[in-house]
Structure formats: C-alpha cells, structure tokens
C-alpha cells in the first residue's frame, strides 16, 4: 500500500494549463497518462529491469486483448496485467503483484528493440495504466514508440548506455528528461539519455489529440 502511494507521488508533473488539467480530471481514470503535477519532466522511483526484444506479447499477453482501452474499468484492468507475459524464470519479480492494480516501479529499463511485435496499443496503455511513467531502453520497435507518443501513456527514452546490464530491479533511480540523464540514486552514477525531441511535448500534453488542441492544430472540444 505504501509502495503504491509512493508511485503516485512519483507520478509526475508538467506545465499544463490549469483548465486543461481540470477538464482531464473528470476522466483521469480513463487516461491516467503521465501526470507530472506541474513539475519538470523528472520521474523518480524504483526501476524494473528488462533485457532485449521485450515484445508486446510479454508486455500484455494476447488473452487480455479483449479488454478495450477506451473503457475506463478495462483500462485499469489492463494495467494489472502489465508485463505479466515475462518468463517467470528470467523475471522472478512480477512487475505488478498478484491482486494489485498498480506497479511499484514507475521506471522500466530495457535493452534493444523494446516493444517489438504487434501494433496493439494495449501495450503502452497497460504500462501507463499500471503506473509506469517512463521506459529507458537502447532502442524501440517503431509502432510501440509511436503508440507511446500518440497516447501520451509514457515517455519512451533512448540511451546509448546498456543500463539493463548495470542496474537491477528495485534500484531507486531518477530519470531527468530535462537534463537528459538517468541517475542511480544508490551509487550516484549517471547515464546519459537521448533527448525526446518533438515527442516530448506531445507526451507532456497527454497524447496527439491533446497536443493538437493545446497548440491550436485542431479546435478545442465544445464541451469539456
């Protein structure tokens, strides 16, 4: 329980107009997304370490694809299954505990080609709904990266460092996407990250639709 609340605190804060945030408040359950609570683009908390080629079947096994992400209760439920397809022998610690809806690990570390496989948007949604705010990996599969950005569910950050060989699950880290550095809070060791570029503001806004509205690309909704 304590762990869950610390995740909530770690769930994070960005410059978003107050009105926009309020209008989102009503359906916060539907689209938790990354909420930086008005603060800088920094996420701090325990990390969960995965290796190369984590495919979407491991992120959210196909049997749970009957859950429709645009339905609020099913969105939450998707979160409870996040990363449950990882092989038990390689990943003895579950990302989301049995009987829990949320993860203790707001930061996911990956190797190469994170999110390969199917185009299911359920994958970034499951991670976002579980409480993940950021993945730091060496590279991403194209559709997964795109789905992270368009949904605004979590930040897909790239790095040249093979962090997945250096950190282990449970380590406290800080992912600073303003200065583009990940810090191991136990040792103080820092790892450089690649800038998010144009993808950053889209995720900050909460996805492509929110971004398009906030920048005037499409007109704001008539009713909130």
């Amino acid at each position: 329980m304590q762990a869950v609340s610390s995740v909530r605190v770690a769930r994070v804060a960005l410059a978003r107009p107050a009105a926009a945030r309020n209008s989102r408040g009503a359906r916060l359950v539907v689209q938790a997304k990354v909420d930086l609570q008005g603060g800088p683009r920094v996420i701090r908390g325990k990390c969960y370490v995965t290796k190369d080629n984590i495919d979407t079947d491991q992120i959210i096994p196909a049997e749970y694809l009957t859950l429709v992400p645009s339905k609020p209760d099913e969105y939450e439920k998707l979160g409870s299954y996040a990363l449950c397809g990882l092989p038990d022998d390689l990943y003895p610690t579950r990302y989301v505990e049995v009987d829990s809806m949320k993860t203790e690990y707001p930061v996911i570390i990956g190797g190469q080609n994170f999110g390969c496989g199917s185009s299911r948007e359920h994958a970034p949604v499951a991670l976002g709904a579980s409480g993940a705010g950021v993945v730091v990996a060496e590279s991403y599969a194209r559709i997964f990266f795109r789905n992270c950005v368009s949904t605004g569910e979590l930040y897909p950050v790239e790095t040249d460092a093979r962090i997945c060989e250096e950190l282990e699950t449970g380590r406290e880290v800080e992912v600073d996407m303003v200065n583009d550095v990940l810090t191991d809070l136990t040792t103080g060791k820092k790892y450089p990250l690649k800038p998010l570029g144009d993808a950053g503001p889209v995720i900050d806004a909460g996805g492509i639709f929110e971004f398009a509205r906030s920048t005037g690309m499409i007109k704001a909704k008539a009713s909130a």
Binding site: S118, S119, E121, P124, I143, R146, N147, S150, T151, F209
Partner: peptide, 26 residues
C-alpha cells in the same frame, strides 16, 4: 491497419503498415 501484419498488403505494390488505436482513431 490496427494490426502489425497490415504490411502483408505490400505484396500488391502498395504502402501498408500497422498503427495503434489512437492513430487509427485519428
């Protein structure tokens, strides 16, 4: 298409690729 194997249709000399729900909704 909302399926990664949408690229199948490239066999016909067309551009075909998979997207997520949000892009498809757009």
């Amino acid at each position: 298409g909302t399926d990664s194997h949408t690229c199948n249709a490239g066999a016909f000399g067309q551009f075909a690729t998979g997207v997520g729900n949000t892009d498809a909704g757009f």
